[in-house]
């Protein structure tokens, strides 16, 4: 049976679309919507556990607010650099776009290095997920977030590797927007995790 109202498949700015929104972008937003549910479940569980616990143990001085602040600045900075990469790409300034993208991956890597230093400091003090409910939540929330940061870095490097020449860039640059959407989402998650875990 023919679908009389179905929008015809076509292209938009060189990328395929069936809905008026580029397919890749629509897919990424749907994926991010599911990711919002995932992290809200984790953060919601943390908040409910914390509010219902009669004596919340807390980090007891084992979390370094300074390191958390630097990590937040790194992620905010990387959000700026990846959006500047996209802007440069739209101006057809390929080498500039690639430079901003590489800087984004480096800033994300810096975040993971600092997180690794924090983890090793905790483990050297025998602070593990089983220590108490706070550390179970801490390792779960930051662990899943860290995996998402790692995924974002790999995504950025993948885009970088596929855009080495100008001709390939013209065909692949829409992926940069998708990588940017994912990266900004990872930044937003940390914007909430940082105060919840480090500040209160």
């Amino acid at each position: 049976m023919a679908h009389a109202h179905a929008a015809p498949a076509g292209t938009m700015h060189g990328v395929s679309t069936s809905t008026g929104v580029p397919n890749g972008k629509l897919g990424m937003w749907l994926f991010l919507a599911s990711e919002v549910m995932f992290f809200t479940g984790l953060i919601g569980a943390y908040i409910i556990l914390r509010m219902s616990h009669p004596q919340w143990p807390g980090p007891e001085g084992h979390l370094n607010v300074g390191m958390g602040t630097i990590n937040t600045l790194l992620l905010i900075g990387s959000s700026v650099t990846i959006v500047l990469a996209l802007a440069a790409s739209q101006r057809e300034e390929i080498s500039s776009a690639r430079g901003w993208l590489l800087l984004t991956a480096l800033l994300g890597s810096g975040f993971l290095v600092i997180k690794g230093i924090e983890y090793s400091a905790k483990l050297s003090h025998h602070i593990v997920p089983g220590t108490n409910i706070f550390w179970a939540c801490y390792y779960t929330l930051t662990g899943f977030h860290g995996l998402h940061v790692l995924g974002g870095i790999l995504f950025n490097l993948f885009v970088l590797s596929r855009t080495a020449s100008a001709s390939v860039w013209a065909d692949q640059r829409h992926r940069l927007e998708l990588a940017g959407l994912y990266w900004h989402f990872v930044d937003i998650v940390w914007i909430f995790l940082f105060p919840l875990l480090y500040l209160f």
């Binding site: 809905t19 929104v21 972008k25 629509l26 937003w29 940017g180 937003i188």
Partner: peptide, 20 residues
């Protein structure tokens, strides 16, 4: 701010804002 300006929700197609 990140969603509106960096993820371009304020200028992109409205359907994306609804999905978000």
């Amino acid at each position: 701010l990140v969603a509106l300006y960096y993820m371009h929700l304020q200028s992109d197609q409205r359907v994306l804002a609804w999905i978000a």
